[in-house]
């Protein structure tokens, strides 16, 4: 456990030291969302209509933005080999790194999203649902991203490859995440969508570390 926390702490420290990670992601998210009112026009009705989808799709793209470095830096400086040869099983190593990635990107995105919702005239009663759906959905993005990042290790143009692999897998998260916010807007029950999202999160938690660990073992061979 202390080894798990050591990896988590190191990755957070690196994210903090680089500064690039969190701030780039938040900056991209803010600007990408802010561009929409300029594009589709300022009518509140139209904005309110597209708000859930836009916020969720942009959160998804922002999370993708920082994924390519998840294992790449460790792979290049030889840390990955040393980490895999340690007493921590690779599955937990993946989980530690995905956790750090979520704290550095998914959590800030979740916290920033309600503020950006105001931009898009998202009604106040939908804000808690937006927050909850992102809180359940962004860890899935980090976990799926870990699989993509592990699979694309060492590939040229890994960022594009990663997006092509991860985006289709993230569709259920997008559908139910945006669906929950939309239900909240129109006064429908949000429970079912959030429950499915929670189920997806648990599935990802069980499957993704195993898949990513297998890909990592392959990558260092």
């Amino acid at each position: 456990m202390s080894v798990f926390l050591a990896v988590l702490k190191r990755d957070l420290l690196l994210a903090l030291r680089d500064g690039a990670g969190t701030w780039t992601v938040l900056g991209f998210f803010t600007i990408a969302v802010a561009v929409f009112p300029l594009g589709v026009g300022p009518e509140p009705e139209v904005l309110r209509r597209v708000a859930p989808g836009v916020l969720w799709a942009m959160a998804l793209l922002s999370a993708l933005l920082s994924l390519d470095t998840l294992f790449e830096a460790d792979y290049r400086d030889g840390s990955l080999e040393a980490l895999l040869a340690g007493q921590l099983v690779p599955e937990l190593l993946v989980l530690a790194k995905a956790c750090a990635h979520w704290i550095a990107t998914g959590l800030p995105l979740t916290l920033a999203a309600p503020a950006l919702g105001i931009f898009l005239h998202l009604p106040t009663e939908a804000m808690p649902v937006l927050f909850a759906s992102l809180l359940l959905g962004t860890p899935v993005l980090s976990l799926l991203g870990a699989v993509g990042a592990a699979l694309s290790l060492g590939a040229r143009r890994a960022t594009v490859l990663l997006a092509v692999m991860v985006l289709p897998l993230a569709v259920p998260v997008l559908v139910f995440g945006a669906g929950a916010v939309e239900s909240a807007q129109t006064g429908l029950a949000v429970g079912p969508s959030l429950l499915i999202l929670g189920g997806v999160a648990l599935c990802a938690l069980a499957v993704c570390p195993v898949a990513a660990a297998a890909a990592l073992r392959q990558a260092v061979e």
Partner: peptide
């Protein structure tokens, strides 16, 4: 049983930012 061996290769496995 990878924990029985420590490999120090050409790369130092150190982070420039730390």
């Amino acid at each position: 049983a990878p924990e029985r061996a420590v490999l120090i290769g050409h790369q130092d496995a150190l982070k420039p930012a730390l």
